[in-house]
């Protein structure tokens, strides 16, 4: 029988259980703040065409979102294995790494994160969307693209910072990871999509009620709100699930 007491915690604590900090240089801070603005403005700009033609709009947006996310990873986040960025001591000189090499060292994991997002997260999320009652026999392009956008907003940053560490991913799945900007964004995106499904059955006969527009909107708004809340309000908090 399982015991919920805390003594089961393995002695070797998981490598990165502290909330992830955004890198401390100016570009990182700037882009981390620009990131939600970018996401929101992309949503705002493409709203009309999203309602008119969800498939081609979502398809056209996907590369842009991938780039926005990849740049976020590269610029703002510590990559897998990198020690958590500790705030630089005032007098410390920054290690002068060759910028090209540095960029390469970061671009590869970012690219890998996107590949994992496409091959691992998107199919899983597609199945989850179907489980929640997404249409099974019709609207496949819409559902697939919805899964892709869900994956793009929820997972690349997690792959980039946490890699494929099973222990961490189990903690992510069971909501035990302390909340930070990244995890907050993931949670917010999921919650936003969940809420986004609510207006679908209403008989208002609005164009924007069509599949999957409301969920996409919920997803983007949720991701932005989650990111801000995770980064500023709930940073370091843990969800107590049991």
């Amino acid at each position: 029988m399982s015991s919920s007491t805390a003594n089961a915690k393995p002695a070797a604590a998981a490598p990165n259980e502290k909330p992830v900090e955004i890198l401390q240089n100016q570009a990182s801070q700037f882009y981390a703040n620009l990131h939600p603005v970018l996401l929101l403005s992309i949503l705002l700009v493409s709203f009309r065409s999203l309602v008119q033609d969800p498939v081609s709009t979502l398809l056209g947006l996907a590369p842009t979102i991938a780039v926005v996310q990849a740049v976020y990873c590269v610029l703002c986040l510590p990559s897998t294995g990198q020690p958590a960025a500790s705030p630089p001591k005032p007098g410390q000189k920054k290690k002068a790494a060759k910028p090209a090499q540095d960029l390469w060292a970061k671009a590869v994991p970012a690219f890998l994160s996107l590949v994992l997002t496409l091959t691992l997260s998107a199919p899983t999320l597609y199945i989850i969307v179907i489980l929640f009652g997404g249409p099974l026999t019709t609207h496949q392009p819409q559902t697939l693209l919805l899964a892709l956008h869900l994956a793009l907003l929820t997972t690349p940053q997690l792959y980039y910072t946490h890699g494929l560490d099973t222990r961490i991913w189990l903690k992510i799945a069971s909501l035990q990871l302390p909340i930070d900007e990244l995890f907050g964004m993931t949670l917010g995106a999921c919650l936003g999509s969940w809420i986004g499904a609510i207006p679908i059955p209403l008989d208002w006969d609005r164009e924007w009620q069509k599949w999957p527009v409301t969920i996409v909107i919920g997803l983007y708004l949720g991701a932005v709100v989650g990111k801000l809340a995770g980064g500023y309000v709930f940073k370091g908090a843990k969800i107590k699930i049991s």
Binding site: S2, S3, A8, K9, I128, L131, F132, G133, L170, K171, A173, S174, L175, Q176, W194, A197, P201, L202, D203, I241, S242
Partner: peptide, 30 residues
Amino acid sequence: SFTIWEDEQLLFLLTTFGVVMLGSSLGQPD
């Protein structure tokens, strides 16, 4: 509308419980 589509809402809620229970099970130490 919600009364008419109650069956789909129940599917949605049950799946929510299922997914969260899956996550919670994945976090079990044993």
